[in-house]
Protein backbone atom coordinates (compact mmCIF):
# COMPACT_ATOMS: atom_id res chain seq x y z
CA UNK A 1 0.00 0.00 0.00
CA UNK A 2 1.37 3.39 -0.89
CA UNK A 3 0.25 6.87 -0.09
CA UNK A 4 -0.90 9.02 -2.97
CA UNK A 5 -1.15 12.61 -1.91
CA UNK A 6 -1.40 13.86 -5.48
CA UNK A 7 -5.11 13.06 -5.67
CA UNK A 8 -5.74 15.07 -2.54
CA UNK A 9 -3.57 18.00 -3.50
CA UNK A 10 -5.18 18.17 -6.91
CA UNK A 11 -8.26 19.37 -5.05
CA UNK A 12 -6.34 22.32 -3.65
CA UNK A 13 -8.93 25.01 -4.42
CA UNK A 14 -11.67 23.03 -2.69
CA UNK A 15 -9.47 22.45 0.36
CA UNK A 16 -8.64 26.14 0.50
CA UNK A 17 -12.33 26.97 0.47
CA UNK A 18 -12.84 24.63 3.42
CA UNK A 19 -9.83 26.13 5.16
CA UNK A 20 -11.36 29.56 4.62
CA UNK A 21 -14.58 28.51 6.34
CA UNK A 22 -12.62 26.97 9.20
CA UNK A 23 -10.55 30.12 9.73
CA UNK A 24 -13.58 32.36 9.45
CA UNK A 25 -15.60 30.43 12.03
CA UNK A 26 -12.57 30.03 14.27
CA UNK A 27 -11.47 33.68 14.28
CA UNK A 28 -14.99 35.13 14.45
CA UNK A 29 -16.05 32.52 17.01
CA UNK A 30 -13.03 33.16 19.23
CA UNK A 31 -13.49 36.93 19.15
CA UNK A 32 -17.20 36.59 19.94
CA UNK A 33 -16.47 34.02 22.65
CA UNK A 34 -13.87 36.26 24.30
CA UNK A 35 -16.14 39.33 24.10
CA UNK A 36 -19.16 37.45 25.47
CA UNK A 37 -17.02 35.80 28.13
CA UNK A 38 -15.68 39.18 29.21
CA UNK A 39 -19.21 40.57 29.49
CA UNK A 40 -20.30 37.57 31.54
CA UNK A 41 -17.28 37.88 33.85
CA UNK A 42 -17.92 41.62 34.28
CA UNK A 43 -21.62 41.08 34.99
CA UNK A 44 -20.82 38.35 37.50
CA UNK A 45 -18.35 40.62 39.28
CA UNK A 46 -20.28 43.88 39.30
CA UNK A 47 -23.89 42.89 38.65
CA UNK A 48 -24.67 41.84 42.20
CA UNK A 49 -25.21 38.48 43.79
CA UNK A 50 -28.26 37.53 41.72
CA UNK A 51 -26.52 38.11 38.36
CA UNK A 52 -23.58 36.06 39.58
CA UNK A 53 -25.83 33.20 40.59
CA UNK A 54 -27.96 33.28 37.44
CA UNK A 55 -24.96 33.45 35.11
CA UNK A 56 -23.12 30.66 36.91
CA UNK A 57 -25.73 28.17 35.61
CA UNK A 58 -25.09 28.46 31.83
CA UNK A 59 -21.35 28.68 32.47
CA UNK A 60 -21.38 25.42 34.41
CA UNK A 61 -23.70 23.65 31.95
CA UNK A 62 -21.62 24.68 28.94
CA UNK A 63 -18.39 23.62 30.62
CA UNK A 64 -19.97 20.40 31.85
CA UNK A 65 -21.29 19.00 28.56
CA UNK A 66 -19.47 17.92 25.37
CA UNK A 67 -19.30 20.43 22.54
CA UNK A 68 -20.63 17.82 20.13
CA UNK A 69 -23.76 17.37 22.23
CA UNK A 70 -24.22 21.15 22.40
CA UNK A 71 -24.08 21.66 18.64
CA UNK A 72 -26.41 18.71 18.03
CA UNK A 73 -28.88 20.26 20.48
CA UNK A 74 -28.54 23.65 18.81
CA UNK A 75 -28.75 22.46 15.20
CA UNK A 76 -31.20 19.56 15.45
CA UNK A 77 -33.05 20.66 18.60
CA UNK A 78 -33.21 24.35 17.77
CA UNK A 79 -36.06 24.06 15.24
CA UNK A 80 -38.31 22.60 17.99
CA UNK A 81 -38.17 26.01 19.71
CA UNK A 82 -38.28 27.95 16.45
CA UNK A 83 -34.53 28.44 16.14
CA UNK A 84 -33.72 27.53 12.54
CA UNK A 85 -30.12 28.27 11.64
CA UNK A 86 -28.11 27.34 8.61
CA UNK A 87 -25.09 25.18 9.42
CA UNK A 88 -22.50 27.99 9.41
CA UNK A 89 -24.61 30.25 11.64
CA UNK A 90 -25.31 27.38 14.02
CA UNK A 91 -21.63 26.46 14.08
CA UNK A 92 -20.52 30.02 14.75
CA UNK A 93 -23.13 30.51 17.47
CA UNK A 94 -22.34 27.16 19.08
CA UNK A 95 -18.61 27.80 19.10
CA UNK A 96 -19.01 31.34 20.48
CA UNK A 97 -21.28 30.31 23.32
CA UNK A 98 -19.19 27.27 24.21
CA UNK A 99 -15.99 29.32 24.20
CA UNK A 100 -17.62 32.17 26.14
CA UNK A 101 -18.15 29.89 29.15
CA UNK A 102 -14.42 29.23 29.34
CA UNK A 103 -13.43 32.84 28.60
CA UNK A 104 -15.77 33.96 31.40
CA UNK A 105 -13.70 31.86 33.81
CA UNK A 106 -10.42 33.16 32.37
CA UNK A 107 -11.53 36.77 32.85
CA UNK A 108 -12.91 36.02 36.30
CA UNK A 109 -9.43 34.95 37.34
CA UNK A 110 -8.10 38.04 35.56
CA UNK A 111 -10.31 40.38 37.60
CA UNK A 112 -9.16 38.68 40.78
CA UNK A 113 -5.52 39.22 39.85
CA UNK A 114 -5.80 43.02 39.78
CA UNK A 115 -5.03 44.40 43.25
CA UNK A 116 -8.16 46.11 44.68
CA UNK A 117 -6.03 49.17 45.48
CA UNK A 118 -5.50 49.83 41.77
CA UNK A 119 -9.26 50.15 41.28
CA UNK A 120 -9.57 52.26 44.44
CA UNK A 121 -6.95 54.64 43.04
CA UNK A 122 -9.06 54.87 39.87
CA UNK A 123 -12.19 55.57 41.94
CA UNK A 124 -10.36 58.32 43.81
CA UNK A 125 -9.34 60.20 40.67
CA UNK A 126 -12.90 60.06 39.42
CA UNK A 127 -12.87 57.35 36.76
CA UNK A 128 -16.24 55.69 36.21
CA UNK A 129 -16.66 51.95 36.73
CA UNK A 130 -16.54 51.33 32.97
CA UNK A 131 -13.43 53.50 32.54
CA UNK A 132 -11.76 51.63 35.38
CA UNK A 133 -12.56 48.29 33.79
CA UNK A 134 -11.38 49.35 30.33
CA UNK A 135 -8.34 51.47 31.18
CA UNK A 136 -7.07 49.89 34.39
CA UNK A 137 -8.34 46.37 35.01
CA UNK A 138 -8.42 45.00 31.47
CA UNK A 139 -4.90 46.13 30.50
CA UNK A 140 -3.54 45.02 33.86
CA UNK A 141 -4.95 41.54 33.55
CA UNK A 142 -3.94 41.25 29.89
CA UNK A 143 -0.58 39.63 30.54
CA UNK A 144 -2.14 37.12 32.92
CA UNK A 145 -5.10 36.15 30.74
CA UNK A 146 -3.17 36.02 27.47
CA UNK A 147 -1.67 32.51 27.80
CA UNK A 148 -4.95 30.79 28.82
CA UNK A 149 -6.79 32.84 26.17
CA UNK A 150 -4.47 31.66 23.42
CA UNK A 151 -4.74 28.13 24.75
CA UNK A 152 -8.51 28.39 24.54
CA UNK A 153 -8.28 29.77 21.00
CA UNK A 154 -6.29 26.68 20.00
CA UNK A 155 -8.87 24.40 21.62
CA UNK A 156 -11.65 26.22 19.75
CA UNK A 157 -9.80 25.75 16.45
CA UNK A 158 -9.67 22.01 17.01
CA UNK A 159 -13.32 21.92 18.08
CA UNK A 160 -14.34 23.40 14.70
CA UNK A 161 -13.64 19.96 13.20
CA UNK A 162 -16.77 18.70 14.97
CA UNK A 163 -18.85 21.20 13.01
CA UNK A 164 -18.49 18.84 10.01
CA UNK A 165 -21.08 16.71 11.81
CA UNK A 166 -23.71 19.42 11.41
CA UNK A 167 -22.69 19.79 7.75
CA UNK A 168 -20.70 23.01 8.05
CA UNK A 169 -18.58 23.04 4.86
CA UNK A 170 -15.37 23.56 6.78
CA UNK A 171 -12.03 21.89 6.23
CA UNK A 172 -12.68 18.52 7.88
CA UNK A 173 -15.89 17.97 5.97
CA UNK A 174 -14.32 19.09 2.69
CA UNK A 175 -11.19 17.00 2.98
CA UNK A 176 -13.03 13.90 4.17
CA UNK A 177 -15.40 14.19 1.23
CA UNK A 178 -12.47 14.41 -1.14
CA UNK A 179 -10.88 11.40 0.58
CA UNK A 180 -13.93 9.21 0.08
CA UNK A 181 -14.46 10.29 -3.51
CA UNK A 182 -10.84 9.56 -4.36
CA UNK A 183 -10.49 6.43 -2.21
CA UNK A 184 -7.66 8.20 -0.38
CA UNK A 185 -9.09 8.23 3.11
CA UNK A 186 -5.88 8.02 5.15
CA UNK A 187 -4.09 10.55 2.95
CA UNK A 188 -6.91 13.01 3.48
CA UNK A 189 -6.71 12.60 7.26
CA UNK A 190 -2.93 13.14 7.19
CA UNK A 191 -3.33 16.35 5.17
CA UNK A 192 -6.04 17.48 7.57
CA UNK A 193 -3.84 16.86 10.61
CA UNK A 194 -0.93 18.76 9.07
CA UNK A 195 -3.03 21.80 8.22
CA UNK A 196 -4.58 21.96 11.72
CA UNK A 197 -1.16 21.59 13.27
CA UNK A 198 0.23 24.41 11.12
CA UNK A 199 -2.65 26.67 12.19
CA UNK A 200 -2.07 25.83 15.85
CA UNK A 201 1.63 26.63 15.55
CA UNK A 202 0.77 29.92 13.87
CA UNK A 203 -1.63 30.79 16.69
CA UNK A 204 0.99 29.92 19.30
CA UNK A 205 3.54 32.08 17.51
CA UNK A 206 1.16 35.05 17.46
CA UNK A 207 0.45 34.48 21.14
CA UNK A 208 4.14 34.61 22.00
CA UNK A 209 4.60 37.82 20.01
CA UNK A 210 1.67 39.42 21.84
CA UNK A 211 3.03 38.25 25.19
CA UNK A 212 6.42 39.79 24.46
CA UNK A 213 4.86 43.09 23.47
CA UNK A 214 2.69 43.19 26.57
CA UNK A 215 5.48 42.37 28.99
CA UNK A 216 7.43 45.58 28.38
CA UNK A 217 6.33 47.12 31.67
CA UNK A 218 6.54 44.16 34.00
CA UNK A 219 9.59 43.93 36.16
Amino acid sequence: MSFDFAVILAKGPQILAGLGVTILIWVAGTILAAALGFLVATARRYGGRLADLVLSVPVEVLRGTPFLVQIFLLYFGGPYIGLRLDPIAAGLLGLSVYGAAYYAEIFRAGFQSVPPGHSEAADCVGLTRIQTILHVQLPEMALLVLPPSMNMAVILLKETALLSLITVPEMTMTVQAIGSQQYAFVESIVVLALVYWALVELANFLGRVAERRLSTYSA
Binding site: P115, G117, H118, A122, C124, P139, Y217
Partner: peptide, 13 residues
Protein backbone atom coordinates in the same frame (compact mmCIF):
# COMPACT_ATOMS: atom_id res chain seq x y z
CA UNK B 1 -10.12 64.79 47.65
CA UNK B 2 -6.76 63.42 46.60
CA UNK B 3 -5.82 60.04 48.03
CA UNK B 4 -2.37 58.58 48.58
CA UNK B 5 -2.04 54.92 49.53
CA UNK B 6 0.47 52.95 51.53
CA UNK B 7 1.05 50.64 48.55
CA UNK B 8 1.20 53.54 46.04
CA UNK B 9 -1.31 51.76 43.77
CA UNK B 10 0.18 53.12 40.58
CA UNK B 11 -1.12 51.44 37.44
CA UNK B 12 1.74 49.21 36.28
CA UNK B 13 0.93 49.34 32.56
Amino acid sequence: IGMVFQQFNLWPH
